[in-house]
Every structure is written in structure tokens, then in C-alpha cells.
Design a binder for these strands. Sequence first.
DNA 1: TGGCCATTTGGTTAAAATGCCAAATAGATG
DNA 2: CATCTATTTGGCATTTTAACCAAATGGCCA
Lengths: 110, 110
Amino acid sequence: MIEQRKAHLEARARVLKAMAHPSRLFIIEELEKEERCVCDLTAMIGADVSTVSKHLSVLKQAGIVLDDKRGNQVFYRLRVPCILNFFGCVESVLESRAREQSAYLKAVGK
Amino acid sequence: MIEQRKAHLEARARVLKAMAHPSRLFIIEELEKEERCVCDLTAMIGADVSTVSKHLSVLKQAGIVLDDKRGNQVFYRLRVPCILNFFGCVESVLESRAREQSAYLKAVGK
DNA sequence: TGGCCATTTGGTTAAAATGCCAAATAGATG
DNA sequence: CATCTATTTGGCATTTTAACCAAATGGCCA
């Protein structure tokens, strides 16, 4: 594999890896609507604050979100606005599998 | 977090996680062009066959690829054809960071 | 300043991912 | 049938992730 291509694939993989967690996807979806402080997100997710803070740190590290400290709160927002669109294909994968499974169930008469 | 939404986020996360590895992204890109046997992919990636086989198994498990045994070879192809399109946003994230970093370098006179 | 609030960081533990080797499996072929 | 090739599976060592608790940090306000 060519070195430059490898580097590019690694960069992409890092972004995907950062997104590949239910809580982090939740955060991304919420930030699509509006910016949020850590406390809001923590309440919505229902995990320890430190856990949520670390998820946010992963997203920030990957360049997916930006943070903005105001008073004693920190507000997060998406760096790039296209994430919803981004999921078209993930959904296609899920739907494709769902269709196949329901066809199977039908075939075995369930 | 609502139970149904949680399940949906978990399903999405599983797909993303399956994609979030350089070798698996490489496989996806190659399969976009044409189907490939394990031996081809192994040669291109340059890892142990068993390693590549396990990567393929991850992608299959996630519903991203399909396999087809012909003779003593197994050919893999994408289950869903939209992956290239899927990367528009990942690229946006990468470009956004790149722009920011180069602006920084410029600012400090490098 | 002292204390409160929001957030981050460090530490620990458990679980999952990665990669290789070796062995098992399945098909093709002499 | 013996054997070769392609692929998968099992086992193992190492690394990475994830979650919580506890402690540290930073800003606000009495």
C-alpha cells in the first residue's frame, strides 16, 4: 500500500473511530440542533460527567467539535455541519440488512 | 435517552466501528472498484492472511460486504454501493482541520 | 478569601480490538 | 487418495477503550 494513501486512510479511520460510539453519536446529533454545555449533554446521556467530558474530548481531538468556555460552563458545537447527511450510507447499510432479515423471516414463515 | 433511540445509535455505531480501521477502509475503497478475493486484498495490504480474513469478517458481520465462494477462493463485494459518497463529510472534517492548522502555521510565520 | 459550581484529569479495572502464528477446513488437482 | 492452495478459526500477547470514582482546576459570587 502506498505510504501517502496509508496516511490518508489512517486519518479517515481516526475520524470514524471518534464517531463510533453511541454516546458520541448522540452528542453529534444533539449538536446538530444547537450548541450544548457539558452539563446538558451529561443529563441527557445519563452517565458520569467525567465520562461525557472524555467523550467530548475524543470528538474535539478528532476535529469534530469545537469548545467555547463561557463563565464556568463549556459549550460545544460541531465544527462541520454535514453530519446528518453523512449518515445516509450508514442507514443504507442498516436498511439493507433489515430488509434481508425480514425477507428471511418471511421465508421461514415467521 | 429514549430506549429506541439508544438502540438506533448503537446500530449506527456498530457500522461505523466496523469501518474505523485503515485496512478496512482500504478494503472498502478497493471493493468499490470491483470485487476481490482474499488473496488479492492480502497482497495489497501486506499483512498476514489471517489478519485480512478477520477484517473481512468484521465488515461482513456489520453488513458492509457480502462474500461469494467460487472454487477455492472467496470473493468479497460491497453490499451497498454508496460508500464513496459517504466520505464527503469525513473529508470535510479533515479539510477543516487542515485549513486551521495551515492558518496557524502562517500566523506564526512558518 | 472561602466556598460553590462546572468541567477536566488521573487512577483503576474490565472489556474489546489487533495482529501474528499455528492448526483446521474446503476445494481443486495430480 | 495425497497433496496443494485459499481461507477461516483458535489461541495468545499486547494495546486500546470505556466507565466510574476521586481529586484537581478554573470561574463566580457572597
